[in-house]
Nucleic acid binder design. Structure first.
Length: 584
RNA sequence: GCGCCUGUAGCUCAACCGGAUAGAGCAACGGCCUUCUAAGCCGUAGGUUGCAGGUUCAAGUCCUGCCAGGCGUACCA
């Protein structure tokens, strides 16, 4: 709709240009935005304010001329000039009603598929397989997954890349320990030890620190692993398989759409690393410094104000994560043919990505037209404002976090609705518990740090998962109560009241909101939108009788609004990776 | 030292790449269950957007300088 109004304004500008006077060189970039205040209509443009002076008009005068030159449009009921020269557009109610009616009867809820689908490579989750998934992996995993689902819904070709940490020196220690335990213990004992990767890692580290012979064996294994020794690779595969099982158990609980096919870890690029360095050398970007192969970029400085290198090969010949990321970038740009490559990685790696993106472009691994974006996010803090830790100061395992959320959700739902049987209660607690954790994270702007607070995220009031889930059950219960099939409604949508109009006008903005989420990687925009919808629906439901409406026409109209609301809420939550519940 | 990010109501968060009177939710206060719904709705109160300048018709948003906090800054990822 913004585009549509912008087009009208552009044509009006052309008319003014030919009919009145206008500086030859002056071109206008027409912007239309949603009006923030109902009194200002549905959309507003500041074009007259921006261009007035430069075109030689008083802003209000220009606005009047533009208004007079605007082509007719059935969607626009009224155009006002307001304030210093804003042009306010009021949508025609019957047009909103028709759009809403169409959306209500569309399985895509009125959201058109992208006219030009992009191939979007999304790097997210990417846990380190050496350790168990902890809260540090949560944000990348759920924000990335929400954006991925949104992009897919919009019709883009999405390639998920789970860039797991499956390589590096710590694997020597882990393999040495795995080897030792394999011979010392029965399979069952070993399996139970590996069931807690965190403990396994700690135990291996302990042995490494305490026993020189063990440490020597660990280093030996790193070397044979890197040289492709069969026995060593076998141990390595076994360890990774078990570690990945842990990851997927967490994904399953969290409702993450990643599959095994999306796993492409650091090790996948091992045999390309030498070539990356060679290519950098060939393009004359490479410099040898203190024994290491580096790329120096002027714009980055060290703490001593010297040029800061991107080290791609250490003095001992080893490669670093910059090298791996360059190889991954080349693969994504060339082999996967990405139009966009998005990284959902902690904000703290901002410098690293700036460097790697720059080097990749200089070296020609990535075209200038390919978008490379680090979608960084802030830290998850505890209620004290410090990074979220256990009472003893350790990292919190994701599985423990989910356990606690489900337990709390169970108690809450049980208290509110004691007649539910245990099986259903468990299922509800699972959706509410994990959904609350996800929603609490997704509803905040990803760039900022946020405070993790169980009580707040599990509240049934405010911008939370329980509130939205309950809002959906309320809408859904209308149909259940009346024994109606939502797919068998008929007739037009009529917007008789303010509550209906506001709800409908917001419902038909689902598409533009999703586009923003996909473009900017900001799922909180969708959360805010859904919260809006839920509030507008509550208000509508309070003021507009649905089942007991006056007459069949009004009843059908309101049922269709309810149906569209249910559809948008359910689809929106699904894009956030949260499923709805018929009862709770 | 340099660079990046953050600073908005008592608390938790918004503000659509410069717009109109800075918005929600909690907490506080006041109303509404003989009418599908109260896990809800309607309303009141709450602000010098860290501070000081600047650019602009217009600044929470852009620029400069301070203050406070977080993070990063050569062979970990």
């Amino acid at each position: 709709m913004k585009d549509r109004i912008a087009t009208l304004l552009t044509r009006a500008l052309e008319t003014v240009r030919t009919r009145d006077q206008w500086p030859d060189e002056l071109t206008a970039d027409v912007e239309v935005e949603n009006a923030r205040d109902k009194a200002h209509g549905d959309f507003a443009s500041n074009i007259a304010l921006k261009m007035g002076k430069r075109a030689g008009y008083q802003p209000r005068d220009l606005a009047e001329r533009l208004k007079a030159a605007l082509p007719e449009d059935e969607a626009i009921a009224q155009v006002d000039i307001a304030g210093p020269g804003f042009i306010n557009f009021f949508l025609a109610r019957d047009w909103i009603a028709r759009q809403a009616r169409q959306a209500a009867n569309d399985h895509r809820l009125g959201v058109p598929p992208a006219a030009q689908p992009d191939t979007v490579v999304v790097d997210y989750s990417s846990p380190n397989l050496a350790k168990e998934m902890h809260v540090g992996h949560l944000r990348s995993t759920i924000i990335g997954d929400a954006v991925v689902r949104t992009l897919e819904f919009l019709g883009h070709n999405v390639v998920r890349q789970n860039h797991v940490g499956d390589w590096g020196t710590q694997f020597g220690m882990l393999l040495a320990y795995l080897e030792e335990e394999k011979t010392a213990e029965s399979d069952e004992q070993l399996a139970s030890e590996l069931s807690d990767l965190e403990q396994f890692y700690q135990a291996a580290k302990q042995r490494f620190d305490d026993d020189d012979a063990f440490a020597a064996r660990a280093r030996e294994l790193v070397v044979s692993l890197q040289s492709g020794d069969d026995y060593c690779l076998q141990l390595w595969r076994e360890f990774n398989r078990i570690s990945l099982e842990h990851c997927f158990a967490v994904y399953e609980r969290l409702g993450i759409s990643l599959t095994r096919a999306d796993v492409r870890g650091e090790s996948a690029y091992n045999n390309e690393l030498a070539d990356i360095v060679e290519q950098l050398d060939r393009t004359e970007l490479l410099t040898r410094s203190e024994g290491a192969d580096c790329v120096f970029l002027d714009e980055f400085r060290t703490r001593d104000d010297e040029a800061l290198p991107v080290i791609v090969r250490k003095a001992d010949g080893g490669y670093l994560y910059a090298t791996t990321d360059l190889a991954a970038l080349r693969y994504r740009a060339r082999t996967l043919d990405a139009d966009r490559v998005l990284y959902f990685v902690d904000q703290r790696q901002g410098l690293h990505f700036q460097q790697v993106f720059r080097v990749a472009r200089l070296a020609g691994f990535v075209n200038d037209t390919t978008e490379l974006a680090h979608m960084g996010f802030g830290t998850m803090n505890g209620p004290d404002g410090r990074p979220f830790k256990t009472r003893s100061g350790g990292t919190v395992k994701l599985t423990d976090l989910l356990d606690e959320a489900e337990e709390r959700a169970w108690r809450l739902v049980q208290a509110k609705n004691p007649e539910l049987d245990e099986a259903e209660l468990r299922r509800i607690a699972q959706v509410v518990g994990t959904g609350s954790i996800k929603y609490a994270d997704l509803s905040k702007h990803r760039a900022s740090d946020y405070i993790f607070d169980f009580d707040q995220m599990l509240s049934f009031e405010g911008n939370t998962a329980p509130y939205l889930l309950y809002a959906w059950t309320r809408v859904f219960s209308i149909f259940r109560k009346a024994g109606l099939n939502p797919d068998e409604l008929d007739g037009d949508i009529r917007l008789d009241t303010e509550a209906e109009t506001e709800l409908a006008a917001r419902l038909i903005q689902f598409g533009p909101v999703l586009e923003q989420v996909g473009e900017r990687g900001l799922p909180h925009l969708l959360c805010n939108y859904l919260f809006d919808i839920a509030g507008l629906f509550s208000s509508f439901y309070e003021h507009c009788p649905v089942l007991s409406a006056e007459g069949e026409e009004q009843r059908q109209s309101r049922l269709q609004l309810a149906r569209l609301t249910a559809g948008v809420l359910q689809q929106g939550l699904a894009l956030l990776g949260i499923s709805t519940l018929e009862r709770m």
